[in-house]
């Protein structure tokens, strides 16, 4: 479904040149969920932004469904690929009601029967019709992220790019959103690319993942391998270690 070949993203020129992403390649099959993990500055979000046209592609190719994407992206691209951003407090227009937020993509793409589609989109993300005329400030963080997901899904895309969809949310709300994403993928046969710094979240939602560091892919591995703690790369290993809590790590050097 998605084929990323030797993707490079470069900002600035000359002395100020920064290679945010250097030669990253991966493929995502139709209906699969693929994770990108790494620390801040590893370029994981930049990969997503480059796919959907928010960051310049300086080298390499991005193929969606076998065809290379055009710059600027056309309407058919956005019918296939949609994105959900990290912070639902920042990604919804504060002075647009839920109804207006959801109507916008439909209007851009000249869709009819907006009425029905909005009601259906709200149902799909588990919110009732009573949420339709609320403003973002009248919603909780989890509800806002549901609206952001509804906005992405309303055009019936095949690929969803998720940029840290739960890191601004509380643990209990994170569980709800993760369950929703899991359920939607199975029901609608969506393809996901999930970016997160949390290994457990990625392992929960994705089958395959790429560990990134300093703009490079360090290791491609599977969620199953992560669960068994088998990683060939030292960096991946240290991430697994760090995500398992605090004490054990400090006991080790003390014992040595």
């Amino acid at each position: 479904m998605l084929d990323i070949q030797n993707l490079r993203v470069t900002y600035g020129t000359g002395r100020l040149q920064v290679d945010a992403v250097k030669d990253v390649s991966f493929q995502v099959k139709k209906g699969a969920a693929y994770g990108l993990v790494g620390e801040s500055g590893s370029g994981k979000s930049t990969v997503l932004r480059a796919i959907c046209g928010l960051a310049p592609i300086s080298g390499g190719r991005v193929l969606v469904d076998g065809t290379e994407v055009k710059t600027p992206r056309d309407q058919t691209f956005y019918r296939t690929v949609q994105m959900v951003f990290q912070d639902p407090y920042a990604s919804l227009h504060p002075r647009h009601t839920v109804d207006r937020t959801l109507a916008e993509p439909l209007a851009i793409h000249g869709e009819k029967n907006a009425e029905e589609r909005i009601a259906q989109a709200l149902r799909e993300v588990g919110l009732g019709p009573s949420f339709r005329f609320r403003y973002p400030h009248q919603l909780s963080g989890g509800q806002r992220q549901r609206i952001a997901i509804a906005r992405a899904l309303i055009l019936r895309p095949k690929v969803l790019l998720l940029d840290e969809p739960t890191s601004a949310l509380d643990a209990s709300v994170q569980a709800e959103v993760l369950n929703l994403l899991d359920e939607l993928r199975h029901k609608m046969g969506l393809t996901y690319i999930l970016v997160s710094h949390d290994l457990a979240v990625v392992a929960h939602l994705c089958d395959k993942l790429l560990v990134m560091r300093h703009g490079e892919g360090v290791e491609e591995t599977t969620a199953a391998a992560l669960r068994h703690g088998t990683a060939s790369n030292d960096y991946t290993q240290s991430l697994i270690h760090a995500s398992s809590g605090y004490t054990r790590e400090v006991l080790k050097p003390a014992a040595a």
């Binding site: 994170q174 899991d182 290994l199 457990a200 979240v201 392992a203 669960r227």
Partner: peptide, 17 residues
């Protein structure tokens, strides 16, 4: 709170909310 966190050790699906 403890149960709703996804962990590497166990694959619980759906996560308890």
């Amino acid at each position: 709170l403890m149960n709703c966190l996804p962990t590497l050790a166990a694959d619980v699906r759906p996560l308890p909310t």
